[in-house]
Design a protein around this nucleic acid. Structure first.
Lengths: 166, 166
DNA sequence: GTCCATGCAAACCTTTTGCACTATA
DNA sequence: TATAGTGCAAAAGGTTTGCATGGAC
């Protein structure tokens, strides 16, 4: 952790945010921020805890959750829910600020992409509905290249086209 | 409930699915299906339970969950997670089979839309990544027309553009 | 010295599961 | 009658909270 000057700059940004809010900059908060800013993955709380222990830090889960709340509020970190039953966190620095996700249903790998057409759709649709957009989320679930090569296939179940067979 | 012949047809479709799977068609399953197929809303389990009690049916939560699993497996019902901490269910009959959601962050109202450009994006992006798409989800969060008229505004917090201020 | 954060454990909330009993086919 | 479903309550799993202690400023 904290290998790069980049990561250090991000941690300083978080510290600045905390001071602006009149909140103490604690060791625990710096450690959580360090782990999150040092990774390009979409980390679960367990991932974060594991990484901390690997570097000899032992911080309570409650503190991790509370710090993640602050990181999300600061806009430095984004919270994701890929339907796994828990949340994942990714920092928003040094990556496309607005991006969408490709999620492999077999191995769980998450890839990112950006397509400006998404914003065009958002602008068009929300204008039609008189809706004021704040954020959006486009997730494509399927099989990544590697899982396809490995011969993985997901079973199909249920009625194929129910609406046609009434 | 069960007011329309349409709803009855949907329930029959579910019964057919159950028989095909060699599963019993029970009263409880018919009641849950009736509630879900009779509504155009995105129902939570609590919504479903409340609706049942309103018509004098008292069915255990476990049975509701188990029946919803079957409805989802049959492809007759879709499961949604709008980040509220619980799931919502919508039937897929007599509505656009593939649609996206507009979710109001203030009142929770969910509207639907369809835009074929989403599929074009999906096709393009997945081809680029060698990814085999199975399903996708596009959700736009913001303020609906009514909440805007009512003067609702959501506070902005955090750093505005962190990446520029390192 | 004043606040606020931390850590632990308990609480929370939705969803799942085990088990004795009941209903479907 | 065999097999599977139901209901209840307990368990599970991620996340939040209360409270006594400790640390930041």
């Amino acid at each position: 952790m904290s290998a790069t000057t980049e990561t250090d700059a991000y941690i300083r940004l978080f510290s600045r945010y905390l001071r602006e809010q009149g909140l103490p900059v604690t060791h625990q908060r710096e450690v959580v921020a360090d782990v999150v800013f040092s990774s390009v993955e979409h980390l679960s709380v367990d991932d974060i805890e594991r990484e901390m222990r690997a570097v000899g830090e032992r911080i309570g889960k409650a503190t991790i959750y509370r710090t993640l709340d602050l990181l999300v509020k600061s806009n430095l970190v984004a919270e994701n829910d890929f339907g796994e039953g828990f949340k994942r966190y990714e920092h928003r620095l040094s990556r496309e600020p607005l991006h969408e996700h490709l999620i492999c249903l077999h191995c769980g790998t998450v890839a990112e992409f950006h397509d400006s057409a998404v914003h065009q759709i958002e602008a068009l649709v929300t204008a039609q509905h008189g809706f004021r957009p704040i954020r959006h989320k486009l997730e494509i679930y399927g099989l990544c290249r590697e899982c396809q090569s490995a011969g993985v296939s997901l079973p199909r179940e249920g009625l194929i086209c129910p609406i046609d067979s009434v």
